[in-house]
Structures are given as C-alpha cells and as structure tokens.
Design a protein around this nucleic acid. Structure first.
Lengths: 228, 228
DNA sequence: TCAAAAGTGTTGCCAATACACCCATGA
DNA sequence: TCATGGGTGTATTGGCAACACTTTTGA
C-alpha cells in the first residue's frame, strides 16, 4: 500500500486545426530513445505536484509553443501493459482545437520539431498513438453534432460558408446549404457582425460570430442541440 | 525522464444497481487510515503488470465480490493534486451496471463492508468520490437515451413496465406509456419470450428480452437510436 | 364488482428533407 | 459578360407529443 508504484503517468494531446478545407493534426518528431525520428503526439510525463490539465498545457507549450482555444479529456489508455515498450506507462489523452491564427509556426520556442499534418497524410505514429488519434476523431465527429465546437476551429469572424465547409469536411459528407444555414440561424447561435469579406471573385460574404452567451443560455435551459 | 514518479495510480468503480424503483450505488466502508469508517467507492491501486480494466475488476471482486454485467471508462480524476490528502493519487473511474440478481449479498467473500445505497440516501463519501458519483450519474442519464444500457439493470426477462419505470426513475420524469412503448417496439429491440408474469392483482404481463443481435445489426448500419 | 396493472390508436404539429435559382462582385 | 462564390423559399413527409379508455386478472 505504501510502496511507490512503478507505473508512469503521461498526458498526450491531440490537437486539431483546420485550414483550407483540411483537418490537421499537430505532431512532433521524437528526439530521443528507440523511437527517435518517428512522429508522435505531443505529451509527456506528469509532474508530482501538477494537475493533469496543467500538465498537458505545459507539455504542449514546451514542445510546440501552442496554446489551444478548447480542450477536453478524451480517454485514458492503459489496458495494454506494453503500449510503451520501455516501461509501464498509462496515458491520459486530451483533445484540443485551435483557431487558424494559431496554426502559424511559433518562432520563439523549442518547437522546431512540431508540424501540422493533414489527417489524410499522417505519417506512421509511435506507440499506440494512431489509435488515440482515431478515438479523438470519432469523438470530434460525434461532438460536432450536439455541441458547437466547430467554432473553435474557425476565426472569430467567419463567413457562413466556412462553417458549412468545416462541417462537411469533418463529417465527410455533403450538406444541403439551405437546410444547414436555416438550422443554425433558427438556433440563434450566430450573430452577424456588420462586416463583410471580399474574396476576389464572387459575391462578398457577411461575417458572423459565434454567440457564446446565447449558447450558455440554451444550455442552462437544458436544450439539446442537433447541429448536423 | 528515468526517475520513478511518485504519483500513484488508482482505479475506482461506480456500480449502479436497480431495485424496486430505486437506483442504487455500491459502496464500501473504509477499514484503514484517516478515512477509516467512512464510505467510499470500491477501488484501489493498479498493479504494475495489470491493465486498467483488469485492475477495476480485480478490486471490485476483492472488495465486494461482485461481477458486473457492463462497464465502461468514465473519466480520469487528477486535476486536484490534493484529492487524496495522503499523497498524489490520480484515479481512473469506471462506471458499471449490474442486474438485480447480483444485488444479493455475496457470502463467500471479503465483502462484509460492501453495501448498496439508494442514490437518494447516500452517506457522505471520502475524497472526491461524491463528485465522481455525480459524473457517473450524469453519464448514465445521457447514455440511456442513445444506447440501450438500461437492460443491463434489469433481469434477462422483464415485463415492459419494468423498462418504463426504470427510465422514468433514472431520468426523473414521467414518460408517456404509449409513446415509450411504441418507440421501443418500432425499433425492434425487444423480442417477446412467450412467457407471462403474474403479480397478484392486475393483468399479467408478457415478458420480453433485449435483442442484442438486432441491436448490433442496427449499430453496424450506423443507425443512431433515440430512446427517450 | 372492484382494484390493480397491462395494453392499445388517432390526430395535430413541427422539424427535417429535397430541391434550383437569383445576387453581388471582380476580372 | 462571365466566372465565382453568396444567399434565399417552398412543398412534402415522417416522427414526436398529446391524449383516455379497454382488458385481464386476483381479491
């Protein structure tokens, strides 16, 4: 009961970004050990006097320089005793979303080995990390339809079409533009900034913001969303 | 990197049972340490060469003699560094359901200190265990409406009214009997055994079984349930 | 014959779907 | 004037919610 255990506790972060119609994952190149040179999720061991959430944020910052806009615990991986061949490690995985401005490389950090990969073209990952990514992706897809997390992947102000393309990309199916817009508009989760985006050819688009206050109201009333 | 950490890893189990219209939780009375005599969730430390799932089942067996019919990982609690005042412990919580026959006290075990409590009349719990129970309860409620977990709390064969009362109890709201029945019947998740239950006064009820095969079929087709 | 629990149908409404054309701009 | 992307309306349908009485049994 009092013996110090030899199980090590890690946290890993699956960070999704979104750019020009592609879903991206943030990976780092491992610098040490037997897995040196291979790609993996950012993460590391939890310090003794540090909460789990603090630990993920710290590791992310150290390894990639990135600060996320939204994060939530995903799952704890620890059924396979040999998931890390070096020793017994269990990992609490978190998944996070970042907005496009965060995607730019962070110069002032030790993040030289961090890189964004389109989900479609991910390299092979170390350990069981590709399982973790699949789990996160499944969760993101599910979540998209009952919690307005999509906004975390967009700029603060965005044209409606960006939202539509985002959903359509992540869910991997086409959406009817009119119906999709109708539903979001009816929910009242978008407020129109007066602004407009011009984009070369084509009609300019109004810009919207996510109305977080309205969303919290709905939540308090116990209203469940259905955002397909 | 190589130092052995001083964080200890525990698993805890929230086991729900259901009897005569009440939702029950399984608790144990602590025998040692500063929390001696207070009630807590069954659980304990994970052994070095043991998967997490194995660990919960082992602890449950040791402390309560109970084998569950359904279990799933709930959440990992480790943000509060002092959640266990003795040392840094993070806990992976699992929540589980058992069928009524399992509720009977298990004689041949070290389970003398295990006891079922109606949710409404739970004692104060050690550590952050009441937070864990609330989390589990919220999950159970949510889950009930899109995954047929309710059956895990009933006997193999049950009259339809049991299912209805179960839902109504856990969700804490009345359900329209006709609509509820219609929905379940339409889904085809119940198959009627030819049998009948007589119960003193009142018309006898047909007994049903949950049709697991049918459910798996639906799942494979990607059909989402909506079981209010 | 009464009390207790099981069983059953219909209607209105709303929300999801399907579907195709016009608008505003820059080149 | 054309290419590009933004923006909009309607008709149909299927599923959900609301609603109350009859049936079968034991006492």
């Amino acid at each position: 009961m009092a013996a110090i255990p030899e199980i090590r506790l890690a946290v890993d972060a699956i960070v999704f970004g979104y750019k020009s119609g592609e879903l991206l994952v943030l990976l780092i190149k491992r610098r040490f050990g037997s897995t040196k040179g291979s790609w993996a999720l950012p993460g590391g061991f939890v310090l003794k006097h540090e909460g789990l959430t603090t630990a993920v944020h710290r590791e992310l910052k150290e390894e990639t320089g990135i600060t996320v806009s939204w994060m939530e615990q995903l799952y704890t991986f620890g059924d396979d005793v040999h998931r890390d061949p070096r020793s017994r490690v269990i990992s609490v995985a978190y998944f996070a979303l970042v907005c496009p401005s965060t995607l730019e490389p962070q110069a002032n950090t030790d993040a030289s080995d961090a890189q964004w990969f389109p989900l479609e073209h991910m390299p092979t990952l170390a350990f069981d990390h590709s399982v973790i990514v699949s789990t996160a992706l499944a969760r993101l897809r599910a979540k998209l339809s009952y919690q307005p997390v999509g906004f975390e992947l967009l700029d603060k102000e965005f044209p409606f079409s960006d939202l539509e393309t985002l959903y359509s990309t992540i869910l991997e199916r086409p959406l009817d533009r009119r119906n999709f817009r109708k539903k979001f508009m009816t929910l009242g989760l978008l407020k129109s900034t007066g602004r407009i985006r011009r984009l070369g050819g084509g009609r300019p688009a109004q810009l919207f913001r996510f109305d977080r206050r309205k969303y919290e109201q709905l939540q308090r009333k116990g209203i469940l969303l259905d955002l397909t």
